[in-house]
Amino acid sequence: MKTRLVNTALPVALLAILGLSWEASVHFFEIPSYILPGPWEILKVMWQRMDLFAAHGVVTLIEIGLGFWLALVVGLTLAVLIHASRIIERSFLPLIISSQTIPVFAIAPLLILWFGYGIGSKVVMTAIIVFFPIVINTVEGLKAADPDTLALLQILEASPGQVFFKVRVPQSLPLVFSVIKIGVAVSVIGAVIGEWVGAKEGLGYLMIHANAQLQVELVFASIFWLSILGMGLYGLVVVVERLLIPWRHGGSNK
């Protein structure tokens, strides 16, 4: 309990110190707010323009959510197929790995061209970025079953399906969740880049727009909201992880 308190208090304290020094520097060096606004001003904008951020934030959130689901569904399905079939593994895996040498951001303009200025192109952008780590880590996780446990299942005369669902799937869950957590953070980047390249709404669009008009405090406020969005999604994944992997946290499920 005490360590937990310290673990929470330390980063909060550090954040407060950084914020205060930022605020102090802005005043001390008399930096104009169109170059670097102080955190207090940014917080005020975040609060005062709430309606604006809410409207654009919802769009970005939908893009992230849909893109992430798309990547998750396609990625997990493909991972299971790769695990199940040597032929699929040999044909797909090298291509998936080498496809990672293509800078995804470079194809963002093409995605806009194909999927339009709406949320479609951003969903695809997000999905493409998150897809790769999900596939690779799920395949890894499914393979990682303990050989002695597999021998036990063999002696118990378990069918391949039973081995898969009773051992391989639960065994891979921790690894899958650790990659989902990374994926959530990355998916925010995907959606924002997509919005930068061409969009009519969303927090990324708002940033570009505000930047062009030298409304730097609005740019910062968007960044802060994006980061809050990312943290919220991360927290959501942690909650789901705790529900699905209770044995890792010493809890008991009824």
Partner: peptide, 15 residues
Amino acid sequence: MAYMQQKDLLLPWRN
């Protein structure tokens, strides 16, 4: 037959 080894081989996700 049933087989038991030195390792308990309990599945960590099962109570």
